[in-house]
Design a protein around this nucleic acid. Structure first.
Length: 489
DNA sequence: TACGGCTCGTGAGATATCGT
DNA sequence: ACGATATCTCACGAGCCGTA
């Protein structure tokens, strides 16, 4: 007795209503209620089901095959789990046998299917590669997460998050606000964080309009502001996410369906909820580093709760590996995330040949930074002293230092922070005292209005050569001229 | 009949260019 | 600087077909 695939297909449609993706000429597949997938070949003579482990018990009319023969090119997209080597295949003899099999398969609890977290193949070797790249880039190897290159590149994420949580103010939400647009507005503001200077811009979600509205990760949220039904749905899910203990998986899937599967957006929203468990993601970047580490996980176009949980589990596993390699204690989830992100960026730069030429330009370590801060203070004091009522051949402008030493120190640190260690006028990265190879790139305190005094609101940090060039000219005019020069270059 | 090499089309994402 | 549009690149999906 045999069961023709077209009859099997009819049964599958009756049971699961719609296929996991539109059928191809050769293959049709379905999701089960527990989130597994199964598929059959449509053109072979008898019904052969591809399905995920575990192996079924002995069932009448169900004949487990020794080989999955799942090399078919149409097993992809939502059916990708079936392209794994541990996929099983069974020949099904009859309609009743198929139903028997499906009853069993549908009943396989999702917990049985919890995928083992993929691990790096040789973390020690990968870590050595990472150190090599860090050293090429910054001149010294990685030692800890709170200083050096990794701190400079990555420390902004928790800061952006803190600010986002303020804007979100989820603790003030009330259930009757759902549908009002207020919650949606708060979520949007917690996404669209743009610092006019420096590094507090939210780059975890691609939200800016630079490449057009359609490209923005949170487009669906913006559109929902003008769509009562979607507004209601979004706000219900946001309320559930931040204010209830409803099933996080269901919320994730719900948001995904509403927002077009934008993985970075979803991950960011969950990162806001709990940075102890959830990390932001940029699929291309993380796939790059996972492939380097030999971790079998593809996140690109795989935005699902299961995939996201695996992603976070992988990072969680890496914490131990990083602790063992570095000897550091208490490596946090976000540290593992930063490690991957920096590694990924370095891999990309190395691939593009940007590492060698970058040389020491990005070199920064705390010692050098501290020296630079001291230097700046010293030179300001000197400037002010020199221009205080002395008799000189030409008129010297009166410049007052309207800050105490401690205030000046604090302001310089603030500015370095806000400006992301870059020149306020040219955007070039600063080099710091002792770690520099070009003294023109040392930071220098500039008065925005050259006729004003040294006070907190009138100062910015610029490259030393910019300060020389700018002399007494007006800030706006000088910026205009600089842009002309940059345009020519 | 199954596998897998191959090609071609598609679309997302990244980047370049142009206009304001 | 910012926004809109054009262009490029790459991975993936789908199907064809030669080989075993």
């Amino acid at each position: 007795m045999t069961l023709a695939p077209k009859d099997a297909e009819r049964l599958l449609y009756a049971r699961y209503v719609e296929p996991a993706k539109s059928p191809t000429k050769y293959v049709v597949g379905f999701h089960t209620p527990t989130g597994k997938v199964l598929a059959i070949h449509r053109t072979v003579a008898e019904t052969m089901v591809w399905f995920q482990p575990p192996e079924p018990p002995r069932l009448d009319g169900v004949d487990l095959q020794s080989e999955p023969n799942n090399g078919n090119h149409n097993i992809n997209g939502p059916l990708t789990p079936l392209s794994r080597p541990d996929t099983l295949r069974a020949r099904i003899d009859s309609a009743t046998a198929l139903n028997r099999f499906l009853d069993w398969y549908d009943g396989v609890a999702a917990s049985d299917a919890v995928p083992t977290t993929p691990r790096p193949t040789d973390f020690a070797a990968s870590y050595a590669h990472f150190q090599d790249l860090v050293t090429q880039k910054s001149g010294e190897p990685f030692t800890r997460f709170d200083e050096g290159l990794i701190a400079a590149w990555e420390s902004y994420k928790p800061r952006v998050r803190d600010y986002a949580l303020e804007l979100l103010a989820a603790d003030q939400w009330t259930e009757d606000q759902i549908g009002s647009g207020e919650i949606l507005g708060k979520v949007i503001s917690a996404i669209e964080i743009q610092a006019t200077h420096g590094d507090r811009t939210n780059n975890m979600v691609f939200w800016q309009n630079r490449f057009g509205h359609a490209q923005r990760d949170h487009r669906a949220l913006l559109d929902a502001e003008r769509d009562e039904r979607d507004k209601q749905r979004f706000e219900r899910l946001f309320f559930d996410l931040y204010r209830s203990d409803h099933d996080e998986g269901a919320i994730f899937e719900g948001l995904r369906d509403l927002s077009d599967g934008k993985y970075p957006l979803l991950a960011y929203l969950f990162f806001l909820k709990d940075m102890g468990r959830f990390m932001p993601i940029q699929p291309t970047g993380f796939d790059r580093v996972f492939s380097e580490l030999g971790i079998e996980l593809k996140t690109l176009r795989n935005c699902s709760w299961e995939n996201y949980q695996t992603f976070n589990a992988v990072l969680n596993e890496l914490r131990g590996g990083i602790e063992r390699q570095t000897g550091l204690k208490d490596v946090r989830l976000i540290d593992a995330h930063s490690f991957c992100w920096l590694f990924s960026t370095l891999l990309r730069q190395a691939a593009n040949g940007e590492l060698a030429s970058g040389g020491k330009i990005n070199e920064r370590h705390l010692g050098a930074r501290e020296k630079s801060i001291a230097d700046i203070k010293y030179s300001v004091n000197k400037t002010v002293f020199n221009s205080n009522g002395q008799v000189v051949p030409r008129t010297v402008k009166e410049k007052e230092l309207r800050m105490s030493d401690a205030e000046l120190d604090k302001r310089i640190r603030e500015l370095l922070e806000i400006q992301g260690d870059r020149c306020a006028i040219t955007g070039l990265p600063f080099q710091f005292q002792g770690a520099h190879e070009d003294s023109n790139m040392l930071p220098s305190l500039d008065r925005i209005d050259s006729n004003g005094h040294y006070e907190a609101s009138n100062v910015q940090l610029v490259c030393r050569f910019i300060n020389f060039w700018k002399q007494a000219s007006d800030d706006a005019e000088f910026r205009r001229l600089m842009h002309l020069v940059q345009g020519v270059g």
